[in-house]
């Protein structure tokens, strides 16, 4: 009874192939088109390589379920269920965080917080939530 989905290049899932390609394209676009984005573009390109490498490692070299879940390379039904619980927690935190931002925006009329200041923290909080939620779900399940 194989529960592995169809695999892309080097045995990595198509989801990771698409993610890595999107990061790479975004990195090149930012580096070429943005006036002050060369460094950030290179960071995105590096992230694409790291992400693809982590996925490959999780599939071929790791015996750790949490490593596979974090790399979106699920080996079976339990890992998919753990991943769903983790992503549900990310969704809940994103919803509450967005609501909080809307409320703050209405309460503080003259608050001028640039998107550039909020976006990186949102990403950091959501990634942190994802990692912790995956860890908790994997321990419980």
């Amino acid at each position: 009874m194989s529960t592995h989905p169809k695999r892309g290049p080097l045995g990595v899932s198509w989801l990771n192939v698409v993610f890595a390609a999107a990061l790479l394209i975004a990195g090149v676009l930012v580096a070429v088109l943005s006036a002050r984005g060369l460094a950030f573009g290179l960071v995105l390109c590096a992230l694409a390589v790291i992400q693809f490498g982590a996925a490959w490692w999780a599939v071929h070299r790791s015996d750790n379920d949490l490593a596979r879940i974090n790399a979106l390379e699920y080996a079976d039904e339990r890992e998919r269920q753990v991943a769903r619980a983790g992503l549900a927690a990310v969704g809940a935190v994103a919803l509450i965080g967005s609501l909080a931002l809307v409320v703050v925006g209405f309460v503080l009329d003259d608050a001028r917080v640039p998107l550039e200041a909020i976006a990186p923290w949102s990403v950091l909080v959501l990634y942190g939530t994802w990692g912790i939620a995956n860890w908790v779900a994997a321990k419980r399940m």
């Binding site: 009874m1 379920d65 080996a75 039904e77 269920q81 994997a138 399940m141």
Partner: peptide
């Protein structure tokens, strides 16, 4: 033999994870 990871068998044995019908039948 049944197409799942070592960790899933461990979770089943500890009663933490309820298998799908497919895995239970396997």
């Amino acid at each position: 033999a049944v197409g799942v990871s070592r960790q899933t068998i461990n979770s089943l044995e500890k009663g933490r994870y309820d298998p799908s019908l497919r895995l239970a039948v396997a």
